[in-house]
Simulated assay, not measured.
Amino acid sequence: MADFPKIDYQYWFNNYSWEGFSSMRGMISTMINKQYIELDITELNITENIGNKIKKYNHKQNDDLLFEIFKLIQTWGGKSAGRHTLNIVENWNDCSVYKYKTFVEKIKNNEVEESFDYLVKREKIKGLSYSFVPKHICFWSGNGNRIEGFPILDDVIANLVYNTNSARNVSYEKFIEDISNFTMELNKVLGKNQQLNMAKIEMALFAFSGFYWKTRKTGTKDFKINDIENHKDFEEAIRISSR
């Protein structure tokens, strides 16, 4: 059952950081050292690069460009899938292209939940994990704009909202239904100029988690910052830690 934290979502969305995560920086370095992504990719520009390449692909499809986008989104996701990402890249073939291209086409045809089931349950790309498929859905469904895409379901969100350690324990379809309903209810009480979409709410949750649990292991009782008593939504963080 979904239990969205009682936090200031507008505040935390505004404090979401596009860069600076050591996991992302580490994966960028690995992928550059392997010559799998361009040398000028950094945590400061990777999100923009993904968006620009998706727009370019939408204008004119190209299998090499599709592969570039896949690698960048995997890199953006960080080192939690590091070895798996390298294995996928090293074993990329015509079958991988077909599966990923079909996945993308389903998203472009507004079959978002079907696209998730396609890559997770039916035509798996070996090594592409349950919690990384939504990252690809996010960028492609937003036509390159992370904020306009579908929200990401990963272990952090699963822990915060469903009190479970793994995204695999949460149905993606149920997550989309739950966060859609929560978004509508939240927007009823927010001001006209403060409306949030599903992606912004998910980003707010991630920012809240990252502030109180720098290890990204939401729910640990060991906070990782100083002077936390004076910070936003501290009592809610304590409640979550004590579950």
Rank of each mutant, 00 (worst) to 15 (best):
K99E: 15
Y100E: 06
Y100Q: 02
Y100W: 07
Y100R: 02
K101E: 11
K101L: 09
K101Y: 06
K101C: 07
T102G: 08
T102I: 09
F103V: 08
F103L: 09
F103N: 05
F103P: 01
V104P: 01
V104K: 01
V104Q: 07
V104F: 13
V104L: 11
E105M: 14
E105K: 15
E105A: 13
K106S: 03
K106V: 02
K106H: 08
I107K: 01
I107L: 03
I107M: 02
K108V: 03
K108L: 10
N109Q: 13
N110M: 11
N110K: 14
N110I: 11
E111V: 01
V112D: 00
V112P: 00
E113T: 13
E113V: 12
E114A: 09
E114W: 05
E114G: 06
S115Y: 00
S115G: 02
S115E: 01
F116M: 04
F116V: 00
F116L: 03
D117F: 07
D117I: 13
D117V: 10
D117Y: 12
D117T: 14
Y118I: 11
Y118W: 04
L119Q: 10
L119K: 04
L119S: 06
V120K: 10
V120M: 10
V120Q: 13
K121E: 15
R122S: 15
E123I: 11
K124V: 09
K124G: 07
K124A: 06
I125T: 08
K126E: 08
K126D: 05
K126P: 00
G127C: 07
G127E: 10
G127H: 06
S129C: 07
S129Y: 04
S129F: 04
Y130M: 07
S131P: 05
S131I: 02
F132Q: 10
F132K: 00
F132R: 06
V133E: 02
